[in-house]
Amino acid sequence: MNNNNVIEAQNLTKMFGDFTAVSAISFEVKKGEIFGFLGANGAGKTTAMKMLIGISKPTAGKASVAGFDVYKQAEDIKKNIGYMSQKFALYDDLTVKENIMFFGGIYGVSRKRIKEKTAILIEELGLEEVANQLVGALPLGWKQKLSFSVSLIHDPKIVFLDEPTGGVDPITRRQFWEMIYKAANQGTTVFVTTHYMDEAEYCDRVSIMVNGKIEALDTPKKLKQQFNVTNMNDVFLKLARG
């Protein structure tokens, strides 16, 4: 594996019976890159992502994530990545502090380091006043920002974000992306799915899945040139409509 690649996938395939959910996809993601993973509902994004994070065995093909093989080293992958989704983020009936400590503990971060991290996180996110309140009482946008920070608590090489900003208000959505930029700038690789096409523009490179295959993969700028349109929404519409 190329040292600079945090994800490498070659002909990665997943079948459910006769149905090919992911069909021989190949791509690489570099260290510190923000990689947008787009596609219509049902295109195979979630299935592909599940293989990459080590919770679903591929039917065929090869892939390594953070230097570990998806077949043989799935547990190592889980320890070395961060993950957050819109649906499951944090425990609503734990406080802000408890959630941070819980996830730090799960990932085997030392007590001392968890303590330091908790203080830093709470300060950075401006959550001092609600640190001892239940997460369930926080507005969605705050939860999502906290959830992203928590997914980084064990300093993973790569973080997978599955529609992290769905339903979030526009200002918070941007603050969230500023956090993504910051993490990427510090060398963390960000692998993100979204239905907001303006967010696709924030990515270094973008792949678009159609019916289980990656039909396009490039920088937003080059994709727009290739399809001769002015924004990523039009790229998406052109591709996904066939």
Partner: peptide, 10 residues
């Protein structure tokens, strides 16, 4: 249209 991709939204 929440959580729906751009094509289906359109």
């Amino acid at each position: 249209t929440t959580g729906v991709d751009p094509v289906s939204r359109k």
